[in-house]
Amino acid sequence: MSRRVAIGFVTILIVGLIWLMVTSVFGVIPSGRFPSPAETWSALIHVSGRGYGGGDLLLHAYNSLRLVVMGFVFAIITGVPLGLLMGWSRRAEALINPVFLIIRPIPPLAWIPLAILWLGLGDAAKILVIWFAAFVPSVINTFAGVRNIDRPVIEAAYMLGMPRMRFVTEVLVPGASPMMFTGLRLSLQASWTTLVAAELVGAFYGLGRVLNVAQQDLYPGMILVGMGAVAILGWATTRALGMAEARVMSWNTAALAAKG
């Protein structure tokens, strides 16, 4: 593990060095096209200190993170139960699936104009769009997860006289959870993509707003800072989800460990 981490660091170091070489040292890429490390650093200082695009970096990052978490959590709360229901009841599936088939091919970003028209440039429109982007993969993967549970396991639950609520919490949810988490990871990615896009279109705060203003100001250093901030937050939230997954599915990691 530490060896892997070390190799990872070396790779990052090399990429950093190449970056330094082609921009500052040899000037292969002019700074108007891609910022040097020094310019990026100064942009970072700029946005963290004096602020940029209406706020400092923490404010922008906080706003973006808040919207993603809200949209994502809202999508889980609504999507997972719906997926469970569709996986469980053929009738619910027959009822709901046609709607999904129509809505699914529409890219979440295509909903942004409508969301803004309905709810304006504030938080509500963005949460709606993020919810929409994250909702579909949560539902579909939870649904598939339920359908993937071995038939005899379900029959065993019946045979054991499982009450309805316990059947949901102790059979359907854990049984579907491997695929459910795959869906949630996709949902989280979709949430970030959609958020940045929505903020690019129009926002008062947020990392997308930073990117948008920096583009108008022809400020490549700041664009890179914005991209980096999105990358770090995206990584951190994915990591948090992974930790939740490891916790919930300890039985599965135990199984993997036993297999070596």
Partner: peptide, 21 residues
């Protein structure tokens, strides 16, 4: 009419709950 614990079943594929000890 329906399954019940007075008729316990042992399945060929064991059908244990993998998430339970």
């Amino acid at each position: 009419k329906r399954p019940g614990p007075n008729r316990a079943v042992v399945f060929q594929q064991f059908a244990l709950f993998p998430w339970k000890s």
